[in-house]
Amino acid sequence: MVDERRTHTDYKFVIRDLTLFYGEKRILNSLDLSVRRNEILGIIGPANSGKSTFLRTLNRMIDLTPLVRAEGEALLDGVNVLGNVDVHFLRRRVGIVFALPLPLPLSIFDNVAYGPRRHRSVQRGELPDLVERSLQAAFLWDEVKDRLHEPAMNLSGGQQQRLCIARTLAVQPEVILFDEPCSGLDPISTARVEDAMRVLKEQYTLILVTNLVAQASRVSDRTAFFLSGDLVEVDETEQMFRKPSDQRTDDYIAGRFG
């Protein structure tokens, strides 16, 4: 699948022959996929197609799920993240935004400052500035700037999800994984999150797992279609939605199943 016209350094992530197991069961078969720098790669597919587990593999969040096991390689700038790496540092480089908004039981400010404080990655005095920039990048600053010290739990669902994005940004990652980030949100909140993503790709590499085919068509540069543990195809989004090369993709996009 690797596009031969591009050089190795154009890719942020190169995944080779990745197989995932849940217990004895294979949930992802020998996957090859590469992610370009500063693109939004959309991943679509019906439930249980292995796309969420795949995403969690990339920053080793699967380590928290006892029965899941990975074989193969996932190279981040040439280093295999499935090998012997410092997972805490890996997660600083590869952030994740979960399906449901999960603010920590802290204030808005402390939520965003949580990562940088743990990593002591900025001076104390620079923290408010970093928090402001992160909230701005997540299109939330204007709505919360006067109540930064209120509990984050008081925000609406859509605001909470943008807070989670800001919290991930404050860690200053290189890649951000989105795991169905809009599944609990109304259309207006969804639009705001999508706006944020379009801006974020200027600086970051984004991988977006979504159960909304239309969302992939709206925001992703390229789209991959997963089906029961297999990568059916990956292509430029426009191309894929105009003329998919595989009949199954066509059926899924057209809503004939899934």
């Binding site: 981040l76 280093v79 790496v85 410092d86 805490h88 540092f89 890996l90």
Partner: peptide
Amino acid sequence: MHQRSRFD
């Protein structure tokens, strides 16, 4: 890949 500080 960078490591955490020794202290950590």
